[in-house]
Design a protein around this nucleic acid. Structure first.
Lengths: 127, 127, 127, 127
DNA sequence: GTGGTCTAGACCACT
DNA sequence: GTGGTCTAGACCACC
């Protein structure tokens, strides 16, 4: 049946996603300092090593850079932010299209459906 | 930070989701027999009681009906299938819109984006 | 002969019936806490899983809601209580009419009979 | 909580009820012969001793009489039939009133309710 | 063979 | 403490 029961995402990946979203939304701008590993660990009640791993992976991906004794900073690379935003949006779209396909919707139906929903949401907001 | 690390879905819910999708896609039609609880348990290697729970919940939800000694069958209720399809699509759309919002996209941008993506996909298919 | 000898109701259904009646009678009001699963299991001497099943079914039916670590509570939905009361009364009436029919009574006779009985009961109470 | 889980009625009592209903409805008239114990046992797939017990109890209650070598017959006592019909109806009414009371209905409400239901049933039949 | 009920008990998460 | 999930296995009823 192709079922895959263990769907947990590692915590460090969830942290990466969260920080990437903050960057993409502009809540963390190029050059901004991330919270210190220890501080963040305390705040979200996670082992400091988990934060360490998340920051390390983001450094490998060149999203952030660590300056010894200074902390971890968002890279000064505006184009990276833009690329990342598009890439993450593409992934969201692709997951969404896959899911709608798995429900048996064709591309045309998907467009109709989402337009309908947006109209509904607008109406809701007006009231 | 509003993080919620435990993202596991219970196995029985994943089974329900999977079967609901099969119904919605028409791979299981009203009146069709589901695999027997024991057979499915062997196949996907979970305890028969877990399957039992999934089937039972679907029965309470009136998606399926069980006949003692005969098996478990998709309910003969075409309108239920249609309702379910729309409801599941709505949920998918809502999750998607939320995610795009969390990336900082407005409604208009989302529509543009998804149309672009669909055009890209069409091009890919043509090649 | 159409006889059906096995008339046992599952324990979990009997528990559901009992609690539904308490809700309908107002002994359990919307928002009230049900006894904890373990406490009730001890009290009526059944396995905690049996209680769990009864509570779970009531949750799917949206009669109660459970809050992790807090307990299980009657839903804050007064209209649900009213609907349930009427539905349960209808079932009782229908069972009764069926039984009277099986004794050979017509509708008119049934009405007469029950009115007579009520008069008798009133008299009994007065003495 | 006053719950009583074992609600099974002995099979021989269920058989007695069934035959009493046939007598009350006039499907078995005073003087009629009941099916032989062996025949009935085969028919409803029950141990002959169970039938034996049911017939024996009905004899004690003076509903039937056994004539050696001839079989078992409904007693030639029309007034007994009438008494029994009333008694069984009273029991049904009493069970019904009890149940409605347990749902929180007063006598007046019960009368209203049952009249309503009867009107509904009539309407259903007309269509 | 099928599903239905119930028990026993482990382990986890939330408060 | 609370409920939630899952496993293991017994026993029963229907076909």
């Amino acid at each position: 049946m192709g079922l895959n029961f263990d769907t947990t995402k590692p915590i460090y990946e969830q942290i990466i996603d969260y920080i990437k979203k903050m960057i993409v939304r502009g809540e963390l701008k190029p050059g901004d300092k991330l919270p210190s590993q220890r501080e963040l660990a305390r705040k979200i009640e996670v082992n400091p090593n988990t934060i360490q791993r998340a920051y390390r992976e983001m450094e490998i991906l060149e999203l952030v850079e660590t300056r010894r004794g200074m902390g971890t900073f968002v890279k000064e690379d505006e184009s990276m932010v833009i690329t990342m935003k598009i890439e993450m949006a593409r992934e969201a779209v692709s997951r969404f299209l896959e899911e709608m396909n798995s429900l048996g919707y064709t591309e045309e139906e998907i467009v109709k459906f989402i337009n309908n929903e947006l109209v509904n949401i607008k109406k809701d907001k007006e009231n």
